[in-house]
Design a protein around this nucleic acid. Structure first.
Length: 737
RNA sequence: GCUGCUGUAGCUCAGCCGGUAGAGCGCGUCCUUGGUAAGGACGAGGUCACGGGUUCAAAUCCCGUCAGCAGCUCCA
């Protein structure tokens, strides 16, 4: 006998070998029809899913999963099963298809396939028709298991290297397969851990959405596969609702709204990833910047300014050059000699200390011989030259060679468009002696940085090549670190929440000791990582920890939000850094009258103005609150007879400091109102002869509500109140989940 | 960077089984002086992204470049 405990606490006694289907049937015929899977947990163990036809292995707690309600697991099972159906359809249409991997994902599923023929959206109808046939046949999903050795033999015989790879990665002594049909061998099947719907007929509605490239194992050096995306829902109605929602989400795309509302433009003649802020977009940005500047003043930050370029030597010291040159604009070299020496420096660095001189270095030296024979003589040509000025091609001299080249670079070097502001702020800190009494020193700048992002990454304002960070660097003592981190976290949460961006998640990015892209300094990392962890905990933030997501110099606490189509972007960030202070040998004099090393906090609450405002445009769908709206009110005249009054009122509002525009065009009030509403202007003020004679304004909002007839003074009061940043309490965001 | 798709008027898009271009919105002029989600008429505006090729003939077919979109990979 099996003892099955149900969610309501009732315990059923079932014969051994009973299945979830039997349990559901015992409870009621409706549940029996609705059951698609069961969640079981044995002896307090973790819950897992089993198919309705799988015998329940032991006494357990069990709950039946159905497609009714919005059970996330049920949707994953539905979509996973639909992925199988799609894979079968594709295999039937294109028998040379080799399947790779097909999991459910957030709003649907995908299946990675290896198929020489390129699928296009034109192929989707045929695939969907084939899928519909399989669904209509209502074939059961049948699980069977093989011992690992037998399963591997079977897969080897089938000759799909991807499935063999999947099987090798799977855990356990037994591998499972799912047949889309009542018995193995006669129907399509797939190596799969499950679980699945009882049968294909349970798939209510599905759609193949798009196809894109994806790398095997997510590795860009590996084979590229085709990833076919689709989704499924219990009913056609839900699918249609989802598709409508997707379409509506696209309507709030910041690239579209930015164009329509004249906020910004990106001009190929200026360059990809270069944002041109148009006057209306610039208003929003300036208002946000001014708001933050006020907060920073209160919080004891000091404004600074720094240039957009700095010497390569600066970035060599910080470590940005050359390790981060992948995402940097090419350096500006002062001379060909400087270019060759810099490339040589990189080549020496990359060779390491164990090998002797590389071909690249030899080629560069040849170039140098042509460009600067005298220097070439000194470096390699002249055996009489002083040892300290000469390169040593043998292994074991890396440090010497790097120092020699760097010495020569003191004469002529180059500049780098800054990818980050920190090295420049560090030099401001270092420009005068610091006492522990001065700390923390908080240097703030809206600093514009340039990163040469891969072309395929650029995206409107959210991923660009030139952007302005609301950056600051705090130099503090170890005792001050926690308070500083806490203050930064508070500020970051404030800027998100004041705009109603509550739908964010927080990630603690830790370094991966095995990855060479992080500066090696185990004690520094240990201290920094425990500091950010502690700060996040103390602030009551629930965060996920992710290894490998740190900056190269320190761990980060990142705030991520989703855009209108559900992509996640990092906005605010707070970082602890023990590395740059060491690389730049920063100091302060402690109370013991001895030098100490400060700790740095890097932080940017908005992150980047471009990305933040891009997200904000989508968040508000262009309908900015009054305090941020580029135009706060349009004064629309009914006819020429009231145009003068409209102009006078507009001037009054502007004198009072508000962003008002007049619409005295010859249109009727209908089109005027329509235009103002489509521009998302918060207030549409209608003035005719009636208002003119009474000295009032007929105030309407952009949602079509009439606020009423107000005196000019009353309207000004209203605008004054609403022009102060006020925490948005409604969750306006409608990112697609 | 990779794979696929796309690039036609200021904007959104149609035309694309080859025969030198169209709509709506916007813009200009005029009529209408109109009371709350698009009044009417007329007009201007395009080297069909760019460069090659095939062809009697290319917006249309082919190749390349650039740019955009989606995904992947990066970045953070």
């Amino acid at each position: 006998m099996l003892r099955i405990k149900l969610p309501d606490g009732k315990v059923l006694e079932m014969p051994d070998g009973s299945t979830p289907a039997d349990v559901a049937a015992r409870i009621g015929p409706g549940l029996a029809r609705a059951a698609i899977n069961a969640r079981i947990s044995m002896a307090g163990g973790p819950p897992r899913h089993i198919d309705v036809a799988t015998p329940i292995p032991a006494d357990c707690e069990l709950s039946i999963i159905t497609l009714k309600g919005d059970d996330a697991d049920a949707m994953r099972i539905l979509r996973h099963s639909t992925a199988h159906v799609m894979a079968e359809a594709i295999c039937r249409l294109f028998p040379e298809t080799r399947l790779v991997y097909g999991p459910p994902v957030e709003n649907g599923y995908y299946y990675d396939i290896d198929l020489p023929r390129r699928l296009t959206p034109d192929d989707f109808p045929a695939i969907e028709a084939e899928m519909a046939r399989i669904v209509k046949e209502d074939r059961p999903f049948t699980r069977y298991e093989l011992p690992r050795a037998a399963a591997m033999k079977k897969l080897a015989a089938e000759g799909n290297p991807y499935k063999i790879d999947n099987a090798e990665r799977a855990e356990g002594d037994v591998l499972s397969f799912y047949v889309t049909g009542p018995e193995p061998g006669k129907y399509w099947e797939d190596l799969c851990m499950g679980t699945h719907l009882p049968s294909t007929g349970r798939i209510g509605a599905f759609k193949v959405l798009n196809v894109a490239g994806a790398f095997w194992h997510g590795d860009a050096t590996k084979q590229q596969l085709q990833r076919v995306y689709g989704t499924a829902f219990p009913s056609k109605k839900e699918l249609d609702a989802y598709l409508t929602q997707l379409e509506q989400a696209r309507e709030r795309d910041h690239r579209r709204i930015g164009q329509e509302l004249g906020l910004f433009t990106i001009d190929p003649l200026v360059g990809s990833g270069m944002v041109l802020w148009k006057p209306k977009g610039a208003v929003i940005r300036l208002l946000l910047e001014e708001h933050l500047r006020g907060l920073l003043r209160q919080a004891g930050y000091q404004p600074v300014f720094s240039p957009h370029v700095g010497r390569l030597e600066l970035f060599r010291t910080s470590g940005h050059f050359p390790y981060y040159r992948d995402s940097q604009f090419p350096p500006l070299y002062e001379s060909d000699t400087a270019r060759i020496l810099n490339e040589l420096w990189i080549a020496v660095l990359e060779r390491g200390d164990a090998k002797s001189i590389s071909t690249i270095e030899e080629q560069l030296l040849e170039e140098l011989r042509a460009a600067n024979p005298g220097l070439w003589q000194t470096l390699v040509g002249d055996p009489q030259a002083p040892e300290a000025r000469r390169l040593n091609p043998a292994p074991g001299h890396q440090q010497h060679n790097l120092a020699v080249i760097r010495e020569h670079l003191r004469v002529e070097d180059g500049f780098l468009l800054k990818p980050m502001n920190c090295p420049l702020h560090v030099r401001i800190y270092a420009s005068e002696p610091r006492s522990y009494r001065d700390l923390p020193v908080r240097l703030a700048e809206f600093g514009t940085v340039y990163r040469y992002e891969q072309s395929g990454e650029l995206s409107g304002m959210t991923r660009v090549r030139g952007f302005t960070q609301d950056d600051a660097h705090i130099f503090c003592t170890p005792e001050q670190l926690q308070d500083e981190l806490a203050g930064c976290l508070k500020l970051t949460r404030y800027v998100l929440e004041v705009l109603g961006l509550y739908d964010y998640r927080v990630r603690i990015g830790l370094h991966d000791p095995a990855d060479p892209k992080f500066i090696k300094n185990p004690e520094g990392w240990a201290m920094a990582e425990s500091a950010v962890r502690h700060a996040a905990e103390q602030s009551g933030i629930s965060a996920t920890e992710e290894v490998g997501e740190a900056a190269f110099y320190g761990p980060k606490i990142d705030f991520l939000v989703k855009d209108c189509i559900g992509r996640e972007w990092q906005l605010g960030t707070v970082q602890a850094d023990y590395n740059l202070p060491a690389r730049f040998e920063l100091e302060y004099i402690g109370s013991d009258n001895r030098p100490h090393r400060p700790i740095m906090v890097h932080r940017a609450p908005f992150g980047s103005m471009e990305r933040f405002i891009g997200i904000l445009i989508e968040h508000f769908a262009g309908a900015f609150p009054v305090w941020l709206a580029p135009v706060q009110a349009v004064i629309a005249s009914i006819s020429d007879r009231s145009a003068d009054y409209a102009r006078r009122v507009t001037a009054q509002l502007r004198d009072a400091g508000f962003r008002a525009e007049v619409d005295d065009s010859p249109d009727k009030i209908g089109p005027k109102k329509h235009r103002a509403r489509s521009m998302k202007i918060p207030y549409i003020v209608v003035v005719g002869e009636q208002e003119c004679s009474r000295g009032t304004l007929n105030v309407n909002d952009r949602d079509g509500r009439c606020i009423g007839d107000l005196s000019v003074a009353a309207f000004i009061d209203r605008l004054r109140v609403e022009s102060r940043p006020k925490r948005v309490t409604t969750r306006a965001s409608a990112a697609v989940e």
